[in-house]
């Protein structure tokens, strides 16, 4: 049975190699066709058409990170639900309850974040 999984890996490897090669090979070949005349002005960042006044990559505001935090927690939750959900169809009410408790537990995190205003974009 694990032989079938091994076959999957080889198949996906081949697929992935093809997927990587098809963008990369033209990219390398076209290097010899397309014009390449870099100049100092051309290599400046474009921004919105004006000269850059502030450096990018400066510490940005934290709102993004709040969302990323709640995201990772819920991602783990959904992933575990994926493990459980295929067997739920033929499971008892008791099993459904077990899964429900899990969902409610994690959802509390959402309500906490909501109440604390972490989900407000500012």
């Amino acid at each position: 049975m694990s032989e079938e999984l091994l076959a999957d890996v080889f198949f996906l490897l081949g697929f992935g190699v093809a997927g990587l090669m098809l963008p990369m090979v033209p990219l390398l070949l076209l290097r010899y066709i397309r014009p390449q005349h870099p100049s100092a002005v051309k290599l400046q960042p474009y921004e919105s058409g004006v000269v850059q006044t502030t450096a990018p990559r400066r510490p940005f505001h934290m709102a993004y990170y709040n969302f990323a935090l709640v995201f990772i927690v819920f991602e783990v939750e959904t992933v575990l639900l994926f493990a459980v959900s295929p067997v739920l169809r033929d499971a008892s009410w008791m099993d459904l309850l077990k899964a429900g408790i899990f969902v409610v537990l994690v959802s509390d995190g959402l309500f906490y974040a909501w109440r604390k205003g972490a989900l407000v974009w500012k």
Partner: peptide, 27 residues
Amino acid sequence: GRAFLDQQLVAFEVIGIILLAAVVAAL
């Protein structure tokens, strides 16, 4: 799935609690 609902139920629910704790703590 069966393992999570039967023998490893405790692990399953404990992960829920850990996730809750993690989101509260990190926030």
